[in-house]
Each structure stands twice: as structure tokens, then as C-alpha cells.
């Protein structure tokens, strides 16, 4: 348990005091309010860093190590994730780790919805086919990309065969949850 840094009480992107979670047949959709995010962009001629020992992934890929993870967002740019640290100043911690790089706090720039399947890859891939124009067979575990979803810009990260994370801009959280939930419900029908 991390000590609260303030006497203000945060709310989740969906406006709740606790993260939302809902089950649709084989799929469970969960708001991940604890995820800290910081963008990392290399300066010109900067060597590839290994923040917290994390090897930064190649184009279109994601890596994870303990509670830390990273995915590629552009040439020389990554998003670094830290589980359970959403209320800390993770950007400052990252900046201290790679002082030369450009680091921006992105924790509340995005809402992360984790989608888990109890029946393997098929429900995950069926959901993806309704929402994002990505070839799900070529988008296996360890793949990450940014794309469009119902006119919104999202990051899609395939954590494993049966787990997917969709991140959308935080202010679109309600609309993104709606899109995911309606689709998951229809797959269940």
C-alpha cells in the first residue's frame, strides 16, 4: 500500500471511486486505475537506455518485467507502464532514471481497460475484429500498436493470448467503455 500523497480523493476515469469491472460471458472488462504511465522520447544521438533494467521494445512490440512494462509508440518513443503506481509521480521516477531523455507524465492522459478471456484467444480476437482494423492473427502476445476505434485514438496491447489492454484518451473513457461493453455483450449473445 502506497501512502496517499494528498488529502484529495481521486476518481477513476469512469467517474467512480473504485475501478469498474464487468463480465460478459468469457470476457471480463476491467478499468485499470492503478497503472502509471510516462512517455519516454530519446534525444538526438542518445543511446538506447534501459530504465529500471527494462529493455525497450522494438517497433510495434511491448515488453514487461515485473510490475514494469513498455510499448513502442513511435521512432525513438515509448510508453513506460508501472502497475499499481497510478497515484505516484512515476514520470519523475523515470526522469531520474533517464535524465537525458524527454519524459512526460501520461498517467491520466489515458484510461486503460484490461480485457481477459476465460476461453483463450478466440473471444479476444472476435472482440478485436469488431473494433479495430488489425489482423488479429498477426497481432499476437507482445504486440502493441496505436490505431483508431470508433473514431477514437487508442493503444492496443496484446498482453498474452487471452489478455488485451485497450488504452484510450481519458476524457473519452465513457465512450470507449461503452464501445467495448456493447461489443463484448453482443459476442456473448
Amino acid at each position: 500500500m502506497i501512502e496517499p500523497v494528498t488529502d484529495l480523493a481521486p476518481i477513476t476515469a469512469l467517474g467512480g471511486t473504485v475501478p469498474r469491472s464487468e463480465i460478459f460471458g468469457a470476457l471480463t472488462l476491467s478499468e485499470n486505475a492503478g497503472l502509471a504511465l510516462a512517455s519516454l522520447a530519446l534525444r538526438k544521438d542518445q543511446e538506447m537506455p534501459k530504465p529500471f533494467g527494462l529493455p525497450l521494445p522494438e517497433v510495434g512490440k511491448a515488453v514487461s518485467m515485473g510490475g514494469l512494462a513498455a510499448f513502442w509508440t513511435g521512432r525513438g518513443q515509448w510508453m513506460i507502464e508501472a502497475a499499481g503506481r497510478g497515484e505516484t509521480d512515476f514520470a519523475a521516477a523515470l526522469k531520474a532514471e533517464v535524465p537525458k531523455a524527454c519524459v512526460s507524465e501520461q498517467t491520466d492522459g489515458w484510461v486503460a481497460f484490461d480485457i481477459a478471456s476465460t476461453q483463450g484467444a478466440a473471444p479476444i480476437e472476435a472482440l478485436m475484429a469488431r473494433l479495430v482494423n488489425l489482423d488479429s492473427t498477426g497481432f499476437g502476445p507482445g504486440c502493441a500498436t496505436r490505431t483508431g476505434l470508433e473514431h477514437m485514438s487508442v493503444f492496443v496491447i496484446r498482453r498474452s493470448e487471452d489478455r488485451l489492454t485497450v488504452m484510450g484518451m481519458r476524457t473519452f473513457a465513457d465512450a470507449l467503455w461503452h464501445a467495448l461493453a456493447v461489443t463484448a455483450r453482443r459476442l456473448d449473445d
Partner: peptide, 15 residues
């Protein structure tokens, strides 16, 4: 015919 043109990967890597 052949044209060199700009495309912005706005919903992608922003290149």
C-alpha cells in the same frame, strides 16, 4: 499519375 505526397499517421505512430 505518379505523385509524391504527405500522409500523417495520425492514429498510429504520428509519423
Amino acid at each position: 499519375g505518379v505523385h509524391r505526397e504527405l500522409w500523417f499517421h495520425e492514429q498510429g505512430d504520428r509519423s
